[in-house]
Each structure stands twice: as C-alpha cells, then as structure tokens.
Amino acid sequence: MAIRWSWASPRIALIPALTVTAVAFLGAICWTIWISFTRSRRFPDYAINLAEWTRQYERLFRDNAWETALKNVLILAIGSALAIVFGFILAAMIEREKRGEGFFRTLFLYPLAVSFIVTGIVWRWMFNPDLGIQNFLRGLGWESANFNWLADPQTAMYGIILASIWHGLGFYMALMLAGLKSINSEIWSAARLDGVSFWRLYIEIIIPMLKFTFLTCAILLSLGVVKTYDIVLAMTGGGPGTSTWTPAYFVINSYAARGNIGYASSAAVMMLLMTAALFLPLVLATAWQARRREAMAQ
C-alpha cells in the first residue's frame, strides 16, 4: 500500500513537538507528582508507601519557611499589582498627551530587556545603606532617611516589590497602550462632544472597555509572581533569614541546598496548583471573550 505523503508528512513533522509535550511536559509533571508522594531524598525512589503517602505535604505545611514563602507570594502579588495600576495611568497619559509618545514608551520599557539578575544587583546597589540612596538623602539633610530595606525582614519584600515594579512597569504599560489604541477614536470624540469629565470618561467608559486587558495583565502578573526566583536571589538571597523566600525559591532550595527531591517535588506540585488556580480564570475569560465576539459578529 502506498503512503499518502500529504497525509503523512504533517503528522511526521509533528512528532518532535508531540514527543516534547508528552515527555518533557506531561510526563515530567506526572513524574514530579509521583515523586512528591515518595520518600525520595537525593535520588528518586519510586516506591510509594501507602501508609504515609502524604508525608512530604504534611511536612511542607508544618514548615515555617513554606508559610513565609506563601505569605511573600501574596505580598508580592498585591505589591506588584501597582505595576498594572501605574502602567495603566502611564499608558493613559501617553495616549492622551501624544507628545513624546515614542520617547516615553521606549524609556519605560527598557528595564524589561534587562535580566532579573541584573535588576536585582542594580537595586541592591541602590539600597546599599552606606553608599546608595539612603546615604545620598542623608547627605542632603534628611537625617532619618531609611532605605536600608533589604537588611530588615519586615521591609525586605518591599525592596523586591519596588525592583519588580521597575522591571515590569513598561510591560503592563505596553499592553495597556495597545488596549487603549484599540478603542475606536470616535468614542473619544463622542465623549468630548458630550462634555464628559475626565474621571467619568475613564471610570465609566474606558476602564470597563479594557476589562479584558486588565484581566490578562492580572493573570500574567500572578503567573510571574508565582515563579519569582532570580530577583530574590540577586537582591537578598532569600534573606534576611528566610524572610524573602518565595515558593519557587523554596523548591530550588529544597532540591539544590537540602538535596531532597521528594520535598522539592511536593512544593513544586503546590506551585502547579497555584498556577492552575490562576489559570482557570484566563481560560474561562478567553472562552467568554470569544463567545462575546461571536455574539457581536451576528
């Protein structure tokens, strides 16, 4: 029997992608979930003791460092959300004031091209108590200026948040700007003719029109926050103590420093669950958006 190449070729071409997906993603996820139920330490041990299969998770929930990591991820999410807020405000201003659009857009976006490691190192330098901003402000006469945030467990997360906002601001601004530009220009004209005030226009018309953009930004931000690792490492190395640990940091630490694969896997599975919880709304929102678009087209 002859092979129909027009049928077979595309399927053959898909083999690498299918293999990668099946092995490196689906297979690997299953592997991690499996291992999280075992007593594996430095090397994988595939036997599951049914009597105590939740052992790693029980330990995890008792672990103070994990609790700190969860708390930090929340603080980080709330704090970094400011990047969306300011990103929107900046986008709105750039869109309104056409002057210098290219300049401001280019400027606000460049930190995104810089790696988290470099970002962390740069901000660590800014926060340096003896040689950074604090010293500069004290030199100007503000004696009580305290920017030694990274040394204090209470404020170290805020330092990381500031650096994250610096890094991500332009990204959210770019997304918001794209959203604003997609709004029909006649809407703005109509509002001007109606004499609608600036605030009412944004609160009642523009922001509701951009709700899908806001949702996208929020979900991308949360997904990024869950994965936060590099910037913590570069700024505080998790410290002081474990005060700036994040779930991602926790996983790497359990694997690399403690050499406990089983424990690291259980934390990784928790990360997957968090991602899934954040991800579900995105999938639903996409489906909802598609349905709405269909309804509009009719």
């Binding site: 029909n184 006649e186 809407i187 004209s189 109509a190 003719l193 109606d194 004499g195 609608v196 005030s197 009412r200 009642e204 018309i205 509701p208 029109m209």
Partner: peptide, 26 residues
C-alpha cells in the same frame, strides 16, 4: 451641537438607555 458618528461611537459598556443619558448627565 450634537454629532452622529460614522461608526456610531456608542459606549459599548453602557445600555442604550445609558448611552442616551450619559451626555445629559453632564
């Protein structure tokens, strides 16, 4: 003066009533 636009420029997040009222509320 009042204007009718080519693309109508209706406020998509408001109902028809809301659209009619919006300019008046100002």
């Amino acid at each position: 003066l009042a204007m009718v636009f080519q693309s109508y420029a209706l406020y998509p997040t408001k109902t028809v009533r809301g659209n009619l009222k919006f300019g008046l509320s100002v």
